[in-house]
Design a protein around this nucleic acid. Structure first.
Lengths: 219, 219
DNA sequence: AGGTGTATGTCGCAT
DNA sequence: ATGCGACGTACACCT
């Protein structure tokens, strides 16, 4: 990784056009070739950037970074305060826990956690308007579409509503009812779901992890 | 801005849980207090971060960054290779030249590009649930709500649907039909729009710019 | 390569 | 604060 602190002006032309007036900034060039221009604020997001793959052409007073899509950043350097390079090596990578896909896996294994007697028909059931997280059959033999979110908000209810609309247009599946499952469901989402006769279920992620094989725990 | 290069391990607990195994990384602390942990790849996004406002507690071997929402990053430092601070001053900021609003302006001037005989009633027509991009009257005298997007996706159709629902509840306007206009409309959005009897129109931004005053070009 | 859904999305603006 | 819409969204995953 190369870190340059310099007075510079920057222009970007691509998905939009932008300009940065003259100021001292940090230029970060990573081993993968991506370039980021950081100010001393504005959270972790750089002011401008160009992700790999790109081409960096460097001359005495300016850098030109361009990619295949026709995006270009031009960095004019007025004065360079420092220019250092560190070898960080390859990172072992970030281990994430608790994302939606994991929650979906756990609930696919344990649909009865969502509702007594629920059985999985298919995970990621494909439709023209996108995949339904879980398609299930309930104790009474009716089809149930389950939408899973980490945090249940209005968007998720809208999404599930679309699926239900679509699925109920399929004579071999209808009638299909909906269940909205999330670790936490916001009040507004609950209200909206309620008004559409969609059940809401809040699931405890830790309990779900612990209860992954309840038989083995019980005996 | 403070830049530290160090061997470290990191854990984050908050919206999810994550771990970073021991490796050399760049720790960036900006003047606003935000902290970012960068590896030498993965575009401009840090592996972990904590935006301001937060509290950084530093001792000999570890840093603890936490915020009011209960998110916590713990950085264990095994060895520090460098620790430098630069004063970048306040950035003059990024000047953006947007495309979205411009598209709306152009279509407001040229509603007939959307549909033959369409006339503008009002741009940014206010409703309780947000402004309708363009409210128009068609050749037959019916009211038309136009939603404009750079890229037309399902969200945009949902948004327009909400507006139509609202507008059709106004006796002086109803019936109102919808037109979804974008530079590019995704297949799923087209399907959803079709099922709701919303017309889709793809507009060419460059042609629109060129056709801004068609009379002057024709004569 | 293109399409779709997720994200610790972030960011800004209005209520 | 919360809701809502835009973003150069980025990114993984699938066809």
């Amino acid at each position: 990784m190369r870190l340059v602190v310099a007075e510079c002006t920057v222009t970007y032309e691509g998905r939009l056009t932008s300009r940065l007036g003259r100021a001292k900034r940090l230029l970060m060039i990573k081993a993968d070739g991506c370039v980021a221009i950081h100010a001393d604020g504005g959270a972790y997001k750089p002011l401008n950037w160009m992700n790999a793959p790109n081409i960096l052409i460097e001359d005495d007073t300016s850098w030109k970074v361009s990619n295949q899509k026709g995006e270009v950043i031009v960095i004019d350097l007025h004065s360079v305060e420092s220019d250092t390079t560190v070898d960080l090596g390859i990172d072992p990578g970030l281990q994430k826990d608790g994302v939606e896909s994991h929650l979906q896996e756990l609930l696919a294994e344990q649909p009865n956690v969502i509702e007594e007697g629920l059985q999985l028909i298919r995970r990621e059931y494909p439709t023209e308007i996108g995949p339904v997280d879980l398609l299930c059959r309930d104790a009474a033999g009716n089809t149930v579409a389950v939408e899973i979110k980490r945090r249940g908000e209005i968007d998720g209810v809208e999404q599930l509503t679309r699926y239900l609309q679509f699925l109920n247009g399929q004579p071999d599946l209808a009638p299909v009812r909906g269940v909205f499952a999330a670790q936490l469901i916001k009040p507004q989402a609950k209200v909206l779901a309620g008004s559409r006769e969609i059940d809401c279920v809040e699931v405890d992620y830790d309990v779900l992890c612990g209860a992954e094989r309840p038989q083995q725990i019980l005996f």
